[in-house]
């Protein structure tokens, strides 16, 4: 079975049943189950989560995108700093990026105040961090590859040649 294609399907919809995955891949269910178990064991698949439009929740969490610059020294590398930052639950994602700053963080908290405090009290004071720029997320149009619009209606005629 084609593992790349299996992954593509799971990334499209992690809730496909094993039977439906098998049908789409033209494989048998057992092979699909084995392949998934392997991908999990190898750490290729790291988890399964719902893509939620948080703006529709009663208690909408506040999210921000934080640019973070750091200064390295002989003893401390990017990995060491990252190890410290990933431990916070507020940090939803942490990536080392190219360009004007070093780390891109996505942080989430209950309120603007809580989130600001988190950045100023937990991120900024890390000794290697030289600068942070926080962008509060105002509206999300697409997350995890899924558009948040109303979707396009299927306006095709129901039966055509």
């Amino acid at each position: 079975m084609d593992r790349r294609e299996l992954l593509e399907l799971l990334r499209e919809n992690a809730r496909y049943s094993t039977a439906d995955l098998a049908r789409q891949l033209g494989a048998d269910e057992e092979a699909v189950e084995t392949a998934i178990a392997e991908l999990e064991a190898e750490g290729v698949i790291r988890g399964y989560k719902a893509v939620v439009d948080v703006e529709q929740l009663d208690d909408t969490p506040v999210r921000a995108f934080v640019e973070c610059n750091v200064a390295l020294d002989r003893e401390t590398g990017y990995g060491d700093i990252a190890q410290r930052l990933v431990k916070f639950d507020e940090v939803r994602s942490l990536r080392l990026v190219s360009g004007d700053y070093d780390f891109a963080l996505e942080v989430e908290d209950d309120s603007m105040g809580a989130l600001s405090r988190f950045v100023s009290e937990q991120v900024a004071p890390v000794p290697e961090v030289t600068q942070t720029v926080t962008h509060f997320i105002m509206t999300s149009y697409k997350e995890g590859g899924i558009e948040f619009g109303d979707g396009d209606d299927d306006d095709r005629l129901s039966v055509t040649p």
Binding site: D154, R156, L157, S158, V159, T160, P161
Partner: peptide, 11 residues
Amino acid sequence: DVISLGVGEPD
């Protein structure tokens, strides 16, 4: 509530 498998053009 018809699911149409009768359509001759891409979705």
